[in-house]
Amino acid sequence: MNRHLTAIVEREGDGYVALCPQVDVASQGLTVDEARENLAEALTLFFETASASEIDQRLRGEVYVTQIEVAVG
């Protein structure tokens, strides 16, 4: 079974950090693609090894990533 999950990738130092907020799993890489691939591997391992109760406890239904505008200064 495949799951469609959200990946947020941010530049951090000389590399990138990728986070899946639905299950709070993260990974990193030197490029955006590497960070995404490493996150996919980490998520696969999480779903293979976590108990059903841990998955249910950590899995969030809907996550929205959007931008907002705020006044600064």
Rank of each mutant, 00 (worst) to 15 (best):
A18K: 08
E54W: 04
Q22A: 04
E69R: 02
M1T: 11
A52G: 01
M1E: 12
D33E: 15
V23H: 00
D56F: 07
G15K: 07
Q57E: 14
E34T: 12
V25D: 02
R36K: 15
G13M: 05
V32F: 14
R58D: 02
V65E: 09
G61P: 01
E41D: 14
R58Q: 05
E69P: 00
L39M: 14
Y64M: 04
A40L: 15
V63D: 05
D14C: 11
D24A: 12
I8M: 07
R36S: 12
G61R: 08
A18S: 05
Q22P: 06
V63Q: 03
Y64T: 08
R3Y: 05
T49H: 13
I55S: 04
Y64R: 03
A52W: 01
A7V: 13
L30Q: 15
V65A: 05
G73M: 00
F46M: 12
A26F: 08
L19Y: 14
V63T: 07
A71F: 00
R3K: 07
I55A: 01
A52P: 02
V65Y: 05
H4K: 13
R11H: 15
G29R: 07
V70N: 00
A50H: 09
Q22F: 01
D24Q: 13
E48R: 07
A7W: 08
D24F: 11
G61A: 06
L19E: 08
Q67C: 05
T6H: 10
E48L: 11
T6G: 10
A18D: 00
P21W: 06
E34S: 13
G61D: 13
G13C: 09
V70S: 02
R11D: 10
D14K: 13
T49G: 09
T44G: 06
R36H: 09
E69Y: 01
L45Q: 06
V65G: 03
A35K: 04
L30T: 14
I68Y: 02
V23D: 05
R36W: 09
D14V: 14
A40E: 15
G61K: 06
I55C: 02
D24E: 04
V72K: 03
Q57H: 10
F47W: 08
L59S: 06
Q22N: 03
G29D: 07
G13I: 09
D24M: 11
G73K: 07
G29Q: 08
M1H: 12
I8T: 01
T6Q: 09
V9N: 03
V70W: 01
S53W: 00
V23N: 00
Q57W: 07
D33I: 15
S51H: 01
V25A: 06
C20M: 08
E41P: 02
Y16R: 08
S27K: 02
V17M: 14
V72T: 12
V63L: 03
G29Y: 08
E34Q: 15
V23S: 02
A71K: 09
L43K: 04
Q57L: 12
L59F: 08
T49L: 15
E34G: 09
A35Q: 04
A35P: 10
T66C: 04
E12M: 12
E62V: 11
S53H: 03
L45S: 00
S27R: 05
A42Q: 01
I68L: 10
V32Y: 10
F46K: 13
E69T: 03
G73W: 05
E37Y: 09
